[in-house]
Design a binder for these strands. Structure first.
Lengths: 207, 207, 207, 207
DNA sequence: TATGAATGAGTATTCATTCAT
DNA sequence: GATGAATGAATACTCATTCAT
């Protein structure tokens, strides 16, 4: 939808995005109806469709906004650091802090990754984040600080640890963000250094 | 629902579970209708509600079955191994192989974790798996093979790496299961060993 | 929609078709809502969609049924007559009688011809009727009873006269069907015989 | 709505009428939204409601304008002809030429005739046109050039032939307007002369 | 005159679930 | 055990119209 918005319109749009995000996070995307959103805001149904073409569209806008914001936060956390391993660490810590400050978005991103309609977007965002990390990993490898290994694999591994520990420790067990971050960093940097003595590679066979 | 089923009835129930699982995996839980399931099987709607109280119930049955099956597979892979680190490795490898053989269930479990209605079940299953691993981790720590650290944290970290790399490398990038397993094991065992030189713990602060 | 219907189901379907036809005829297709139809029948909304995929579909069924019925009626009126001009006359009279007995369908067919979604169907039905007449016209021409002329043009001309006089005389001015039929037949057969002295063919030019 | 319009305002009004007419003709009246009209013109919604009270009103304006214009065109074609049969012929030819030059209006008039909201207007317009023709028919009868018969019936018959052949031959089969006009004139004048030997008047009976 | 914003009843359609047979 | 039929609340979305500026 292309619409020239006045400042009043921009405010409305933001209001819709924020409220919808909170409802989606609490109830889930499918179970949250447009009616629920507009009623919660005390506006008519047409308002919603004045700003968005569909329920899908507003969700995508929410996701994009979250991805953009998270990425900016990560980059800002890194910008003055030249050591690649430190950049990785700072990136992890920034992510966790951002997620702690935007718990709704965490839920939303997790769900979106499982829904065919949005997963492409999430994948793309993840890929960008992983590319960022991969670059630092490559530098770390060339400096001999990180063991050889596919930087993209390693980047995804870090992402996996970060997400899982954030969900469990931060959101479920309500640990302090810095505690969570310490745990993630410890595991992730250890993982990057790798483990020479793989015991039984391929030893178990398939089905 | 508790119903005494004939062997024919058991077969029907299985048929429903399997077909529903494939539909849910392909379309998502919410977008898949009961009508779609019974039509796809060429039976009437009564059949569905003879065996299950609701669409939620069949989904829960699917999830439970998947969790049970995966756990059995993991345990079988471990039963003759006494070395704790090897048990961890074998557990990881077994998980990846099982997931490779049940791609539908992977999708389903991922989604279920994000839906309030099912997440409790998923969390419980995860917790059990993590407890298993934690036990090995404890042994490993006491043998001095793994660095000090909260075994539950570490268990979740392993789970996070496994899930993420399975999704990305196995399902998206179609890598061979053994390649994926090698990557996961390498990172996980490295992560367990930890990283003594955390550079900036807590240095960045919150918002 | 392909559905095996019980006799109860067939009855419901008929009921829906008949009631919907009357509503469409009275209010028009667009202004008549599915809700109005099911409420008028005192059934749930699902009933409608059990038998028809859409509002369009039921309308098409109505049109098809009307076309089929009208055609049968025309053919029955003609079957024992061998004289081609008499066949034309009998066909016209039969059409008018049928329309007099199915005033709703007349309205429906007229509307359908103007709506892109249904006009193809109406055109096809008209074409069939016109082909029938054209055959008799050809015979009439070869017997020297009808002047030379494109039989399809003439068939459409007859259709036009029939429709217009039926609408105006029969439905608006409430004339007796036989009076209407006499008027149509008189004009149509005169028109078939043609007019040798066209006064100013092409004399007026285009725009 | 009565509004004193500046010349700029009159232009806007015309623009709206013309564009709306083209949309209505292409999509149908009901399916065309006011939004579609104003967006297509790149103006705000207020503009529409400044000039017209409702969507119905603009449609009625369109119809009235078309009727007025057609009637003027017919009258101009006839004004210098005194022979009644020739006046009929010229009227028919003029109508077909006008319709050929205003294909949108043809569609619109056809639809309007089927919609309760507008049919009164269309009927009135038709009645005027038919009265015009009826006058010539009466003259023709008194001159012994046209057989006895109700002039209004005959007038409607001519209208029916004209409309049907225009639709089929001109718009669907893309015949040249003069060819269409020849066919209509031939049939209409033949029809006016009538057919003495009605074979089976009333012989078939009603239901 | 004109705009962007807002209204809210209305639309077609879906779907989990129940019922009668 | 199983079927076709029925329910009716709910859903996403539309649209003629009005309002504030």
């Amino acid at each position: 939808m292309v619409r020239r918005l006045t400042s009043r319109g921009l405010k409305r749009r933001d209001q819709l995005i924020n409220y919808a995000a909170s409802r989606f996070a609490e109830n889930g995307f499918h179970p949250t109806s447009v009616t629920e959103i507009v009623n919660g805001l005390g506006v008519g149904k047409g308002v919603f469709y004045w700003y968005f073409d569909s329920k899908e569209e507003i969700f995508i806008e929410i996701l994009r906004g979250a991805q953009r914001d998270l990425r900016r936060y990560q980059q800002k956390a890194i910008e003055n650091e030249s050591d690649p391993v430190a950049r990785i660490e700072f990136g992890i810590r920034a992510s966790i802090i951002w997620l702690a400050n935007h718990p709704d978005f965490f839920t939303l991103l997790q769900f979106a990754a499982t829904d065919e309609k949005f997963s492409r977007l999430i994948r793309a965002g993840e890929e960008i984040a992983v590319q960022d990390v991969a670059q630092h990993i490559r530098e770390g490898i060339s400096q001999g600080r990180i063991d050889e290994g596919d930087p993209l694999f390693l980047g995804h591994a870090i992402l996996g640890v970060t997400n899982q520990l954030t969900r469990v420790l931060l959101f479920e067990k309500k640990r302090d963000p810095s505690v969570v971050a310490d745990a993630v960093v410890r595991f992730a940097l250890g993982g990057l250094r790798g483990f020479s003595g793989v015991i039984a590679a391929g030893a178990m066979g398939g089905k």
